[in-house]
Design a protein around this nucleic acid. Sequence first.
DNA 1: CCAAAATGTGAAATCGATTCCATAAAAACG
DNA 2: CGTTTTTATGGAATCGATTTCACATTTTGG
Lengths: 329, 329
Amino acid sequence: MVTIKDIAEMAGVSRTTVSRVLNNSGYVSEDARKRVEKVIEETSYAPSEHAKSLRTKKTKVIGVILPTIQTETPSRIVTGLGKELSENGYQILLANTNLDKAKELEYLELLRLRQVDGIVLIATNTESELLDKIKTLNIPVVIVGQEVEEDIMYVTYDDYHAARDLTSLLIQRGHSKIAFIGVDEADRSVGYLRKKGFLDEMKASGLTVEPEWVQKAIFNINSGHHAMENILSKAVDTPTATIAVTDRLAIGAMSYLRENGIGIPDQMAIAGFGASEMSQYLIPSLTTIDYQNEMAGEEAAKQLLAKLHSKKYQEQIILSYRLLVRDSV
Amino acid sequence: MVTIKDIAEMAGVSRTTVSRVLNNSGYVSEDARKRVEKVIEETSYAPSEHAKSLRTKKTKVIGVILPTIQTETPSRIVTGLGKELSENGYQILLANTNLDKAKELEYLELLRLRQVDGIVLIATNTESELLDKIKTLNIPVVIVGQEVEEDIMYVTYDDYHAARDLTSLLIQRGHSKIAFIGVDEADRSVGYLRKKGFLDEMKASGLTVEPEWVQKAIFNINSGHHAMENILSKAVDTPTATIAVTDRLAIGAMSYLRENGIGIPDQMAIAGFGASEMSQYLIPSLTTIDYQNEMAGEEAAKQLLAKLHSKKYQEQIILSYRLLVRDSV
DNA sequence: CCAAAATGTGAAATCGATTCCATAAAAACG
DNA sequence: CGTTTTTATGGAATCGATTTCACATTTTGG
């Protein structure tokens, strides 16, 4: 391997001068600079990142912790992150928890050891153990997808109002009996806020929600299927519309309806969240909320980069959303 | 930051001895070991990866280059990779080309500079420029999804026979006029081999294929939609079945059929490749090929790890597949 | 009991960069 | 012209680990 020492010798200067050329710092004569640059060019030399990191304590690596890479939301966020980061010479060290909550903590520690310059956490919970750990890290962290207390950076979505809007749409379309397929409320954004938006909007419109209409599912298609089955078998008063907190849950619900010959949207309207790619190709196409996840990734990257370069940038970002009204309602 | 020097001082030994404890190497007395371990425990010290890498030339990082993170195949591969690698203490440095072929070369170089221990390339082409670059790297590289010349490691799928089997299934079901939605043949696995399997099986069964039945698409749902439109509008003799080289293309084709009131599978049978999660929830459920991408990722990781530890492991792997026969044929 | 082998330890070199500091030559200034 | 200031350069320390080597002590074996 060719090192800075070799370059220095070949160009007839000291390592210091080579370093100056490399980093564009300090004084260096036009003559010396040219000789060094020529040698660098000829040898296709590139400085060792490790030696650099050891000395400067900067790695140009951002750690990304995500629950799974196999659903669209995190994938889109990572795409957005990747774009913004790579433009600025940063790379992504990936840590996939496979939905194992304990691993979030573990990976935070691992990334600290790797001395990443910053961390993006695509979070599924906001437990205090996690937040405490983040604060002790001494590394800039951005949380994506959850709103947290003031002194941690985050970028999230306006889940509450999205849910209210979606509910409001269904009410406008004449529905008064609306079911809800949610997830565990430990996931504040998806579990708690979307449910709260739904309930508040129902209440605001003077509508009641039967307990059997509200189902708790987990994040997969089958769970949506099962939830819809529960709704229809347990409810005394059958609802005419259902909101599912993710498109995948909505898809599961739709498959149950289809299997049982229940017409969508005539006998049961349905709506989801997330604007999955498939949602527009379903029959009928699915009404859903588009959260612009890629932009969330880009914003998170910008927050982190600003922090790393001691520049100002909004540290708490709540992104807006678009309501995609389609044939399922 | 607490360093090895601090630990040495606190435990009353030299840095050398601490290093010995850390790496379980050389002679170290029970007494000294205990003291060092105690101090390490108390300080929650962890050695700097950069200092280590600088000295040992090992980073415990594997670079992964992929065309996109937003489709299921690469996501599953990365999941498989991640599992196997993290179990062995390796981490993933992600490089997303966003389907920009030039970036594959660029990232190979970047990962070399980062001194990753190995590289996994989820490839969409096998051009000689790429292969040449790989050979000059002096880093173990595994290519996933493409078969390449002998002296490069790869793990891929038996695309050719999968395509023949799928074609054979349609022929058995009584179809003799079968259309094909493919992609550019520069992608040898998806573009060339799947097409060749289809054509060979047709020929072997004495069936002819009209030129209009064979469409070339790109990797997105709309392109499948458009290809099906082409097939039906241009063909003089209308086919009764269509094979699409990805599930997404099949989904696009199905949406066109649906829009035009063409029954599936009665008027047009359809089949895809890849066993996307959605494929089983489509109406009708889609017949497809399951490639077990996660396992491919795991195998690639095993190949790489074996190479890194100078152990023997099969360097060219062609994984089998399962034919999922469902309602769309 | 003495030589050889095994065990235990630390000083110092090393990896490949950056950066502090000293020094010298050239340019600017009064 | 003598004194600052600016420009240019390199020596050496440093970052935090591993590893080579030398040396001392203990154990083993004939």
